[in-house]
Amino acid sequence: MFFPTIDRPLLFAQGIVPLHTTGVSLQGQNLGALRFGYDVMVGNGLGSGELLDNNSFKSLTVAVHVKPRDGWRMGASLYHDVISKGSVLHNHSGGISTRALAKINQNILTASFAYNDSVFTKKYELLAESSMALNKADSLGRQNTIASYAYAGIRLTDKIIPYIRVDDIQYRQEEVYFSDRNVQSFTGGVRYELNYLAVVKLEYQRIKSHRATAVDRVSFQIAVGF
């Protein structure tokens, strides 16, 4: 219901950026004139499950953001984790579990920008995010993966918002952790907000991967919050 599109951007859906962990976090928000905010989290990290941790390494997430003007948000974050050899990782896309072939030191740097014209015309929505994942394994070397997306929507009426989103993930051929499959995606759709608890979306998506034929998909979603 809160997503502007039907699915998450590929950098989340393809498992570049970890989505879930168990841990402890500290948060501050709206501090000072720039409305500075921070999140610091220590978690069990990738390879752990909902109930158990499989190793003594802990993940660290440090994220900061500022909101210099109404409707603007700019952020940056660092994620650090050590994935022990043999870990079965549940953050990969499509429900596929993969096994880490070696101990991997992972650092993910992310920058994000969000703009919502909430003050004047209330028409435009912009989101952009880019992550660089640096994965290093002693036996397999170090590789960088860059995953990005950009989203734009325009509120034609109070309820109707057409939008587009482009995604791009570039892996290196000797990637030590992710599956090597460069992928680009174009998404175009329209969102109809019935009210603040119900949204209908109709969307077309084309996904191109260098290891598979291009996929065209039309999706329809009704999202209800309660």
């Binding site: 928000q29 003050v119 109070d158 009210n195 603040y196 608890l197 919050g225």
Partner: peptide, 20 residues
């Protein structure tokens, strides 16, 4: 708030959902 009723409700829903 410079928001309609719907926008205001959604604004608070998002804040509460995030625990903020």
């Amino acid at each position: 708030y410079n928001m309609s009723a719907n926008e205001l409700n959604k604004y608070w829903l998002a804040l509460v959902f995030q625990g903020k």
